[in-house]
């Protein structure tokens, strides 16, 4: 009897809420719904116009998902991203990663770069980075990120986080990165930023 009353009261509550027009039948947030909310900072369909915020369009799906999970756990340093990533389930993160990976990539708009550093960075890329950051950083192996055509400021912040030991690296990456000086990391950042 008690159960019947409680289920009836639930129906009544539901009816009251429906009458007020505030509850509707709706599907769970789609990948597009989840991802569009990010575009205020990462640009429409993930093409960023802000120097310190990366473009996500055409990014490696695995790299986006790893980044978000790293922000969520606090393993990867961030400003707002850690606080935002905690708002999503792993399934939602995978859905957003998939959405952005399928968008058409567009290199950053004209940015001022140091041409000597670009040339130096190219040599360093060939020597240290190209086995994972394929095709001048336009393509990727496994979980490596697309770094070509990103904003210089964003790449510089990431390089600084690596050099300061704030951002963890895989053993494979650490082997390649550790011998590089800050000046060399800056050169590599300039090189990737220059790729169209």
């Amino acid at each position: 009897m008690k159960q019947i009353i409680s289920s009836w009261s639930r129906v009544l509550v539901t009816l009251a809420v429906l009458a007020a027009g505030s509850v509707v039948q709706a599907a769970p947030a789609t990948p597009e719904m989840l991802s569009n909310a990010c575009a205020g900072c990462h640009g429409t369909n993930g093409v960023s116009a802000g120097f310190s915020m990366p473009s996500l369009a055409g990014q490696n799906r695995v790299a986006i998902a790893e980044a978000m999970k790293g922000f969520k756990s606090g393993e990867r340093p961030s400003s707002v991203m850690g606080r935002l990533a905690k708002g999503y389930s792993d399934a939602e993160i995978e859905a957003m990663a998939d959405f952005f990976s399928k968008q058409k990539a567009a290199p950053a708009a004209a940015q001022s770069l140091d041409l000597a550093m670009v040339a130096k960075g190219k040599t360093l890329h060939e020597r240290h980075c190209k086995r994972c950051h394929l095709e001048s950083g336009k393509e990727f192996d496994e979980n490596a990120a697309v770094v070509a055509g990103q904003w210089l400021k964003y790449l510089q912040i990431q390089m600084a986080d690596y050099a300061d030991g704030k951002r963890k690296m895989s053993e494979k990456k650490a082997d390649k990165m550790k011998p590089l000086s800050r000046d060399e990391l800056e050169a590599i950042a300039n090189y990737y930023a220059s790729i169209k």
Partner: peptide, 17 residues
């Protein structure tokens, strides 16, 4: 200062959008 750098990019992106 890093927050201010992100703030600047926030403005650029949202106004571009």
């Amino acid at each position: 200062e890093l927050e201010a750098i992100y703030a600047d990019s926030w403005l650029r992106n949202i106004m571009t959008e």
